[in-house]
């Protein structure tokens, strides 16, 4: 039976208002609530479901990041992953960590752990890169099924429904393969208290990128991070005639 590797990223919670640091070097993360990237929750859920359906034997969760990434891994364990690997990346290195680095790390771990399926979220809601799954497949030279909204295992192959522009696409991939989870793939479960207690006893291993032989040298330099432009206030006009003349004035009609 297959072993599934899932990637989970710790991101600023989506209900938090994002603030840019005064020096424009990034966004404020200190004292800000974080949670698991929502698409990664979907990835974990899918992996756990595979295990429940006896399509997978083991689910291994991986997170790259500072020590708090372990909280995210504990959540994945409470959701049903069997063990976790924390790839410690912190400080300045974490600020310039990009999908290219993460995909190399994940590819190496997929090989080391003899994974048959890698499932990632289609994108992280902080940098919205949408590149990691594709690059993991590239590094490993495995088939990829991205934006999955349905996954079934038949005759040793995965039948995947993909969300594409204008509709759905059905494809088959041979194992080993890389998947990326789209929004409609499933509804992830919550980590319940009894399961959080149990998760405390599950193994969590710590490694560094160096251990895995991945070079984290920055490939980008952050020049400036800006707030989105503020929407201009509107004004209320008395009647249709004034509206039309105002629109004419501003050259809109």
């Amino acid at each position: 039976m297959a072993r599934v590797l899932v990637g989970v990223k710790r991101v600023i919670d989506y209900a938090v208002k994002i603030r840019v640091k005064p020096d424009k070097s990034g966004v404020v993360t200190e004292g800000v609530k974080h949670s698991m990237n929502p698409f990664d929750e979907i990835a974990v859920e899918e992996a756990v479901k595979m295990k429940e359906k006896k399509l997978a034997a083991e689910v291994v969760a991986v997170s790259c990041g500072p020590s708090q990434a372990q909280e995210t891994l504990r959540t994945a364990l409470a959701m049903g992953a069997d063990r976790a690997i924390h790839v410690e990346v912190s400080g300045a290195e974490y600020e310039t960590l990009q999908p290219i680095h993460v995909s190399k790390i994940l590819a190496k771990l997929a090989q080391d752990e003899k994974a048959d399926i890698v499932i990632l979220g289609k994108q992280a809601i902080d940098d919205d890169s949408n590149q990691t799954a594709q690059m993991v497949a590239g590094v490993l030279d495995w088939p990829q099924a991205t934006y999955a909204s349905k996954v079934e295992k038949k005759d040793g192959e995965l039948h995947v429904t993909r969300e594409i522009d204008g509709g759905l696409e059905n494809i088959k991939v041979k194992l080993p393969a890389v998947l990326s989870a789209d929004l409609r793939l499933n509804e992830p479960r919550y980590a319940t208290l009894p399961n959080i207690m149990k998760a405390k006893k599950k193994p969590l291993k710590k490694v560094t990128a160096k251990d895995l032989g991945v070079d984290l040298a920055p490939r980008i330099q952050i020049i400036s991070v800006e707030e989105p432009p503020v929407r201009q206030a509107g004004s209320i006009v008395g009647d249709v005639d004034t509206l039309v003349s105002k629109l004419k004035e501003s050259g809109h009609v």
Binding site: A15, V16, L193
Partner: peptide
């Protein structure tokens, strides 16, 4: 919560500190 679980006062539950979950 740990006490409550141990003493079987509660049978299931979740805890949240993320604004999205709280909502």
């Amino acid at each position: 919560l740990e006490n409550a679980l141990e003493k079987n006062i509660i049978v299931d539950g979740i805890q949240a500190s993320e604004p999205s979950r709280i909502k």
